[in-house]
Amino acid sequence: MYEILFFVFAAAAVGFAINLLVQRHPIYSAISLIGVMASLASLYLMLGAEFIAAVQVIVYAGAIMVLFVFVIMLLNAGVEERTNRSRMAKQLGAPLVVLLLGLLTSLVYRNFPPDAAVRFGDFPGQTADIGRRLYIYYMLPFEVVSILILVAIVGAVVLAKKET
């Protein structure tokens, strides 16, 4: 049962990702990206990472993608125009993609030997655990990141402010 579901969601994630690149209208691409996020969330959920799955949906599929869709609607972006691809992209594109995928696969295989495969429900951290780890073991990085985000917010406000 779990194996079947895993392949369903994995196939959905890959399918949506390919669709994202193929579609020519930005809103269809955005919807495909929502699909990718949702499939990833399902995969997290199957590993037992409930909190991360929920946050994935709330933050990525729910908040960030709504902003994407909002901007596309606001600008009323039309169908994307394709230029004739450059010669270099045509000839080098596919081999480079294969090379990248090959490198990634070999890295994953070297670092995670096949007998140590991921088991379902393997993720150790429940919600309370994640909180405890964040606020005790990873206190400094956590605070640094929050200050970074604060700086970004202040920057955004300054940029958006009308000049008087």
Partner: peptide
């Protein structure tokens, strides 16, 4: 969190 995530998809 489930309720929050579902209602965030509602938009």
């Amino acid at each position: 969190l489930f309720i929050l995530s579902v209602s965030s998809m509602g938009v």
